[in-house]
Design a protein around this nucleic acid. Structure first.
Lengths: 202, 202
DNA sequence: TAAAATTACTGAACGGTGTTTATTTTGCAA
DNA sequence: TTGCAAAATAAACACCGTTCAGTAATTTTA
């Protein structure tokens, strides 16, 4: 049955075509300013065609979110080889900030944007997000077991670290730090991140 | 000229009517799900009428944001009488969390939502937001001058505190903490906040 | 190979959005 | 009462996400 296989391949290719166009436009223009009609025009198909490959606009968003978490988890993977758990922690914070800096629109979709409905909870869309958190949690746990942390509860410590990074990044992305000198902002943010790691260290 | 005065009063009243309706709907349904047509219907006027009192939808948003900062600054004012700057700091964190908890939609508009354009920067809309930050900054500065802080740069310390609070709150509001047990989340968040204050304290 | 059936695609529509403009209604002054 | 300025609006514009009936292309069947 070579034909049905080819059909399936073509179907996947078409989905990929939509996804590639959507990704580029979401990343460049943002989710809201990218319409289904725009995407359709870009790939030279009718808007209705897109709905043969995606249930709705949010399903495209979810696929792109997964891509984003793929990149982030890949970044995290780069520092997992470090022996010292505290070094891993520092590395993760660094990678997180760089990811947000390099892909602010990905970051927006993944962490700031309003969840389409309630569904992200039930769906496994957020599983890759959970995976990223688990990586952080396990690193924190390792630090704690090595007696390097001042916080006993590893969940609390993880949340603190994540929150301070997300807090700074999202305030920056959403332009709420306009009274900080733009030129020094990146330096301040990185300074705060390393200070935070220093503070929770024994 | 009593007439022109009355006219002006009426004009302000009408603006207030729109604002009150919009506030209720934004707070209840969110900014995106509230349309100009909905607001118009609620106050029993034509949609076009609203544009006689507000330039566009974002101008309504800005007015409501100011209200929100009014509430928040009022909350902050309640703890300014405390002598010990560290107590003031703890109090501010507490008030911040409670504000976010009680008015999540206000919080969304003020700190999470996408800035309409670039204009928030130049406009003085964000001035009341700046005011809230200054209150935090001055409190941090007082703590620092009292030799109570481990962080030298008061801007860095302020940003750290604000970020950890905003990080937790915004991740919560935008449903990114779904793998934390819902029932304990509030407790964890408050725990993290007080731990943070403890960590930066000498 | 011709007809039938499945599949892929699309034009046009539906009901919604923010916003503008030409027109009508209203309230006051002369 | 008439004239005029201000206030309100109906209708339109240009979008949006989404659906569906219908067309075109392709594969299967006879």
């Amino acid at each position: 049955m070579g034909i049905s296989e080819r059909k399936e391949r073509e179907k996947l290719q078409m989905r990929q075509l939509v996804l590639a166009a959507a990704t580029e436009m979401f990343i460049q223009e943002g989710y809201d300013r990218t319409s289904i009609r725009n995407i359709a025009e870009k790939i030279e198909y009718s808007p209705a065609t897109i709905y043969l490959y995606f249930k709705d606009k949010t399903e495209i968003l979810e696929a792109i979110m997964e891509q984003g978490f793929g990149i982030l988890n890949q970044e995290f993977a780069k520092i997992l080889h470090l022996e010292d758990p505290m070094e891993r922690l520092k590395g993760m914070a660094d990678r997180y900030l760089h990811f947000a800096h390099d892909f602010p629109e990905y970051y927006d979709l993944m962490f700031i944007m309003k969840t389409p409905v309630e569904n992200v909870v039930e769906q496994d869309d957020w599983d890759c997000g959970h995976q990223a958190y688990i990586t952080l949690f396990e690193t924190v746990q390792a630090c704690q077991e090595a007696g390097k942390l001042k916080i006993e509860d590893p969940h609390a410590a993880s949340l603190m670290l994540w929150s301070i990074l997300h807090g700074m990044v999202s305030l920056h992305i959403r332009k709420r730090l306009i009274f900080f000198p733009e030129t020094q902002l990146d330096a301040i943010v990185h300074h705060c991140a390393s200070e935070m790691v220093r503070l929770i260290a024994v």
